[in-house]
Write a protein that binds this DNA or RNA. Structure first.
Lengths: 260, 260
DNA sequence: CGTGCTGTTGAGGACGATCAATGACGGTGG
DNA sequence: CCACCGTCATTGATCGTCCTCAACAGCACG
């Protein structure tokens, strides 16, 4: 078993393992091969950047092991557009991994204290060559991320209440997929404003309403969802776009099938 | 030479060849291998759907050979959110190619009469296995598309005039990359409204202003940009996110380099 | 020569931004 | 232990952008 062989890793890599497994890369040798090349552990304090100059060679892939981060861009006026939040097991800079000239402005920042690790591209490439399925899984992961972007665009015209509710539902769903079942969302209103494309002031008014509706906790600064079902209704949330499709093996099954 | 060997294909596959070449897949044998598996030619009239049920097997990839299409989703209220426009050489459904369970609502529609072709996944997989670089190129193309989504999100908070100007700049830039140098944008105001997330009425007012500013042609219904430079200034357009990065070969060069 | 789609214009209203000020909390250092 | 500070949260007032509704004009199509 993967986790048992290296007990120290079990807690640290737990999310990564779970994520990769859910994507269909579930053979132990494949998993071990991937975990085996996860090397330099790093830490980033809240507010710091995570990925570093992404167009420097040799290239690498960064994995978030603990904490919450976000992928964002700064606007000319200094404001921040957050594209997506990142949780343990997520690849921080997969979006630029295959691009020869990654977007300079695109940044990954730590929203809480974070712990990361890196995978050197030379080793990753070698591993992919040996386990081609790994390459497909990574491609697949990056397409799921693109799906998140599209979903955000789709929400763009909804009223603020629904948009925020939807954003919260997404965070809950993604954290549930990692085994985190509490209703706590480890973000600030500021983060949500920058992700939803709303002013902080207005986010706060939306929060006021969400609390009055009994969807969010009334106590403390932490954001805590207390009625998920109702929240999902308000947001009309359909989490299928997040679906870590249980079986990538479908792939291998159907590829060499039939005509036209 | 690729094009010369099959003169009939030269015009039809021109855009596809150009696009693939610009991505670094420039060896003739690789190109020929790809073109060799482009099979069933189809046509779609303006308003029709292009991709068909995307989760049916055997899977395939659709290439747009001529015309203009768009990737969109319908909202509950029937309105349409256009994520991106597609031009000759674009892969219509690459976004769902690697996903086991593609989003059902995600649709590709013909905005003008279109001509398409398909590549069967079985053949594509075999070709990729023989020319792994092709796999990387396709992954790369799908990441560029994700970059377009992010750019759209980034524009989300800009005033309507800039947003529309930016959208127009993007279309011009993408068409220039295909060798189309006219300022004509083959879209309707309705299409732009659905892409920009604005009401048709307001798009029209923005057009009124853009024309008054001397950026768009005053005559006829067609959308024609007459002052690109000024439009780019208004939009503060930086097309780097579209960059078909000239050399994917950088990749092979740097992968097996160095330490850490 | 209608019929339908696209484009155009006006009027009123709503949602969310901005500006401004204050409150609450946690951490740090005296 | 308390004073201080910075960050985040909260609330009020005003304003602007953009939406909606509605009507009509132009053009292309059969």
């Amino acid at each position: 078993m993967v986790g048992l062989a290296r007990p120290a890793d079990a807690a640290l890599f737990g999310a990564l393992v779970q994520k990769i497994r859910s994507l269909g890369l579930d053979r132990d040798d494949e998993l071990d091969a991937l975990l085996g090349i996860v090397r330099g552990r790093r830490h980033a304090k809240r507010g710091e950047g995570i990925v570093g100059r992404s167009n420097t060679f040799p290239r690498r892939l960064t994995v978030l092991l603990a904490g919450t981060a976000c992928l964002y861009n700064r606007r000319e006026d200094g404001s921040r557009q957050i594209y997506t939040f990142q949780y343990p097991g997520d690849f921080c800079d997969l979006h630029s991994y295959v691009l020869p000239e990654p977007d300079e402005g695109l940044t990954v920042g730590a929203l809480t204290d974070c712990s990361t690790a890196i995978i050197r591209s030379s080793e990753l490439e070698a591993t992919i060559e040996r386990y081609p399925k790994l390459g497909r899984v990574l491609w697949c992961v990056s397409m799921l991320e693109a799906g998140i972007f599209r979903e955000r665009l789709l929400m763009g015209r909804r009223p603020a209440l629904e948009r925020v509710a939807h954003l919260l539902c997404e965070q809950l769903a993604r954290r549930e997929a990692l085994g985190t079942c509490s209703g706590l969302v480890p973000l600030t209103q500021i983060d949500l404003a920058d992700a939803a494309g709303l002013s902080v002031v207005h986010i706060n008014r939306v929060f006021h309403d969400l609390r009055k509706l009994g969807l969010l906790s009334e106590t403390g600064r932490a954001i805590e969802v207390v009625d998920r079902k109702a929240l999902r209704q308000v947001a009309r949330f359909d989490g299928r776009y997040l679906d870590t499709p249980k079986l990538l093996s479908q792939w291998q099954l159907h590829i060499d099938e039939a005509p036209n």
